[in-house]
Design a protein around this nucleic acid. Sequence first.
DNA 1: AAAATATCTACTAATTCTATATACTTTATT
DNA 2: AATAAAGTATATAGAATTAGTAGATATTTT
Lengths: 152, 152
Amino acid sequence: MLSKKTKYAIKALVVLGKNYGKAPMQISRISQEEQIPKKFLEQILLYLRNAGLLYSKKGAGGGYNLSKDPKEIFLVQVMRITDGPIAMVPCVSLNFYHKCIECKDEVTCGIRDVYTDVRDATLKILSETSIQNIIDRENSLIQTSSETSNNL
Amino acid sequence: MLSKKTKYAIKALVVLGKNYGKAPMQISRISQEEQIPKKFLEQILLYLRNAGLLYSKKGAGGGYNLSKDPKEIFLVQVMRITDGPIAMVPCVSLNFYHKCIECKDEVTCGIRDVYTDVRDATLKILSETSIQNIIDRENSLIQTSSETSNNL
DNA sequence: AAAATATCTACTAATTCTATATACTTTATT
DNA sequence: AATAAAGTATATAGAATTAGTAGATATTTT
C-alpha cells in the first residue's frame, strides 16, 4: 500500500503541475487546497526538492515550482523518493538492494525470479506514467462525469 | 515490501510442499529447518489453515500438511492471507476494497487507472506462480549452482 | 493417564509511519 | 535597516502496524 507520504506527494505534484510555468505556489496554499497537514507537507516537499523534482524560492513571493515539465516527472521517481523501493523483496530492488535477512542463499532462492517479474511489470507502468498523464486523466474524467450528470 | 509473515508463510508452504503426500510435519520441525520463531510460525500456520490451505492434525504423530497439491496453491493466495491486499491503493483492491481517506472524489481520481494496471500486472504473475513452481525453481537453481562449482 | 501435538486469545516489544514543534535562513518590501 | 513572508532543518511525540511471546486449552495417540 502507498503511504500517505506518497499520496500527498503525488497530490502536491499534480497541483504544482497544473501551476507549471506560473508564479511559485506556497506550501500553505497547497496544504489548504489538498487538505494535507502543513508541517507534514513541508517535509514531503523538502524530500522532493532535495531529490531535484522541485525548485524552491524563499522569502516573500517565494514558494515551490516543478523543476521540470510535468511530462517528465514519473510516478516511479516520486514513489522511490517517498516510499523507497518498488520491489517487494529487497534482494531484487534496483535502487535499494540489500539481502533478505531471512534468506539462507540468494543464489538458490526460488522466489527471486517471480518478484523480479513483478518488479519489472510494476516498473514499466510506473515509469511510463507522468504527472502530466495524471492531470490529463483527471481532466478527462471530470469532463466525462459532468457530461453524464447533465444527461440525467 | 513483503512482511516477514508472508516470507515465513511461503517458506513453510515450500517445505510442506516438498513433504506433500507424506506424514504430517510438526511446527517445531518447520521452525527449526527454516529458522522461523516457533510461536510466530504457529500463528502463521493457523492463518493458512483457517484459510483452507493447510490440513492439521493434533496429538502424537500430528502436524501439518498441504490441503491440496502444491501445484494448486498460488502466491497470490498466500499473500492475501498474510499481507492482505495486492493493490497499492485500497480503492482499487479486488478483495479488500475501501475508499482512500485522502480522496475527495473517487470518480475523478487520476491515479486509479494506473494502480489498477499495476494491480493487474502483479496479480497475473502472482496468480500464475504456485508453490510447486517455487520448488521446481529452487531445484533447478541448486543443480545449476552445483554444476558451476564443479566446473571450477 | 500421560505425552505429544495443534488451537486460541491476549499481551508485549519493536519498528515504522504520521504528524508536530522549534529554531533557523533567505528574500522581498517598506 | 527592520519587518514580514516564505522555505530549511532537525528533533521529537504520538499512532499504527508488525513481529514476537506467553499461557492456558483442546485433541489425539500410545
